[in-house]
Design a protein around this nucleic acid. Structure first.
Lengths: 152, 152
DNA sequence: CGGGATCCCCAATGATACTG
DNA sequence: CAGTATCATTGGGGATCCCG
């Protein structure tokens, strides 16, 4: 599909149903299936925590401090979710005071690879994105000026 | 995390506070900064749309059909957000009926790489995760049984 | 220290209708 | 077709208290 002119009307969409998943990923087919998993992965907190745990096991409050800005509730819920998905293990040391260590499973580590790549991208392009946003917003404000000024 | 058994009392946690950001990324330091960017990336719809656009420019309703399940409102908002961040371009063809093409910018393409890696991981481990979830839930239900049964 | 239970609120998202 | 505007919903997520 290269030579698509401006054919305004309806166009045919091939029944993109039974493609193999492996292929559909790279071609942009029915990615709805992935969204379910990506929802977990894409979750703001999950990603951060997986990144944190990439460097080794951490304790609850240790994670809380590292993430910064997460409530204990969300930390608990997120860790539970990750545990449920088999991405982290929860090890309880029945000491006093109690101690709980969270660590990535093998699956978790395998996830941390693409996640770290994403994190690296984020850091690498942080400035660029910020600039793009400011430029976009500036353009928008400008546009509002026109609308606001009754061409006086 | 090999030795240290259950050493009951208080124990020392090294003051892991003043790491540099560059180092913190790979080691799991204070990644809060990244979360802002990751929030956009991690957004369910954004990720899917970036994946869709990875295979070339798409029209509005084309994307809507491909994503499947997204409301036109969310599609508009998501695309605006991506445009604002300099990840996609919006090209209007003043034809009748109107036509708008969305395409990844260079920045968008650079993002699509790690995103595709993540998608690949998601597909690859979809089954494993589903199993882990079922196992976890089964364990939880089991536990609830104990609570329910008054040790008959 | 780790975390369950509760209350509460607002931002994210969907549904619907209208416009160019 | 591509979007904007409005309304209704809901559940994500913070604050707080309490327990083992």
């Amino acid at each position: 599909m290269t030579a698509q002119g401006a054919q305004g009307g309806t166009f045919l969409v091939p029944e993109h149903t039974d493609v193999t998943e492996a292929e559909s990923l790279h071609r942009g087919g029915n990615c709805q299936d992935v969204s379910e998993i990506l929802a977990r992965v894409g979750d703001k907190w999950s990603v951060l925590i997986v990144m944190m745990l990439g460097s080794g096991p951490r304790r609850f409050n240790e994670l809380k401090r590292m993430v910064g800005g997460i409530s204990q509730r969300m930390l608990t819920l997120t860790l539970r979710g990750l545990e449920r998905d088999g991405l982290v293990t929860r090890t309880i040391y029945p000491t006093i005071p109690p101690r709980v260590d969270y660590a990535l499973t093998d699956l978790g580590h395998s996830l941390s690879e693409p996640v770290k790549a994403l994190g690296a991208w984020a850091i690498e392009n942080k400035a660029t994105i910020r600039q793009a946003r400011e430029a976009f917003d500036a353009r928008r404000d400008e546009a509002q000026d026109w609308g606001g000024r009754r061409f006086g």
